[in-house]
Design a protein around this nucleic acid. Sequence first.
DNA 1: CCAAAAGTGTTTGTAATACACCCATGA
DNA 2: TCATGGGTGTATTACAAACACTTTTGG
Lengths: 228, 228
Amino acid sequence: MLIQQHIRVTVDAVVFGYSAKQGISVLLIKRKIPPHIFKWALPGGFVHNDESFEDGIKRELREEAGITINYLEQLYTFGAPERDPRGRIISIAYYALVDPSNFKLAPDTDAEAAQWCPIDELPFLAFDHKEIIALAQERLRNKIRYEPIGFELLGKKFSMAELESLYTHLLGRSVDRRNFQKKILSFGFLKTLPEKQKHPQQGRPAQLYSFDEKKYHALKKEGIFFEV
Amino acid sequence: MLIQQHIRVTVDAVVFGYSAKQGISVLLIKRKIPPHIFKWALPGGFVHNDESFEDGIKRELREEAGITINYLEQLYTFGAPERDPRGRIISIAYYALVDPSNFKLAPDTDAEAAQWCPIDELPFLAFDHKEIIALAQERLRNKIRYEPIGFELLGKKFSMAELESLYTHLLGRSVDRRNFQKKILSFGFLKTLPEKQKHPQQGRPAQLYSFDEKKYHALKKEGIFFEV
DNA sequence: CCAAAAGTGTTTGTAATACACCCATGA
DNA sequence: TCATGGGTGTATTACAAACACTTTTGG
């Protein structure tokens, strides 16, 4: 039984960014071709015949937004027969974590505009992209409970308060400052830097930390647990 | 930029079964067409143009083995450009849990033979299927720690010892019999049946239990945690 | 010296762990 | 009555959770 397939394959990315002001944001692009022309959508596009999914994602993100990715992981493959009006098009969705302060958004080819949108203020989105974001958010919320991937959303140096605020946003609830610090430091994958935060807007300058990837990977091998 | 895609899409399933004698097994089929003719492989095949992935999986499993699925979940999509000698063929992998005592394997169309193979005694497998099984096993091991999907591998009635033995196999370590029972019963989603195991080979007959899906789903909504 | 945010320890409750003897059955 | 596997309770330990005052800085 040989059936001629007409299925096309896209990759789409849910790119998460974090800033103290806006909280968790997602990168959206405004479509400049049909279908759903001028609607907001996830960055992504058709996979080339000879490239891996990850290469495809990175190419699209370069083309559409010019960003630097800290973490990239496959999320889920969406393939409902009616999800795209152009015919059978499946989407292999990835999610990515970036530090938005690291670069300026620079839309290039397929997208009219690339923009950060706070996760709680999403506009109407093309295709099933809202569903994809919802799944990515759930995955992220689960994942940070047993792997410290939250660090990928921060810059190289950060204060304990910034880290705590990030987790507060990710978990959707507040945590006790003292218990949080105790727990995080007990893992031993934070380096205490010999410098303090410069020019706080108000109050005492905070100790700065950085993430020690070497120590983290050593810990990870013996199985980490990370409930905060 | 329009690029003509030539990517074909398959679905493959890692079907887990459990028996007291063999432990955790995976369903394999012997290929009767090239490539990798006469090699063992995962059940699966090309997705039809108008069917969902899950429908495709179920159709393939019906055709190739005639089995009844208790649990089915998407695992990962494999798409390395060189993973199939026929060209660019990606595989959307699912994993499934079944109760093997529930049916007899009945190979039909594409497969010469369908057979259970203990997870620790896998033969050479076609394509990247060994990698797929490894990922499925890891996922299963993680998942049973926060959701009681292990029950899908058992029959309707089971003794505490059978359940414990299942978890021992899944987790790859032994657990304390008393603590295990205490923990499991404390969740309250087991029904104590008014009957005992008949004709034990030796020793005292065991109390039988069944899984109470209603209570489980109620619990699940308020977030279950299940470390054993 | 005042406002603002950072830093820090102790107590209490709860859940995980470790551990050993008696019970019911079939041969 | 013996061998085999099933059933059960308690003490200890470790970790999570709750909680408030002092310190440093800039204005």
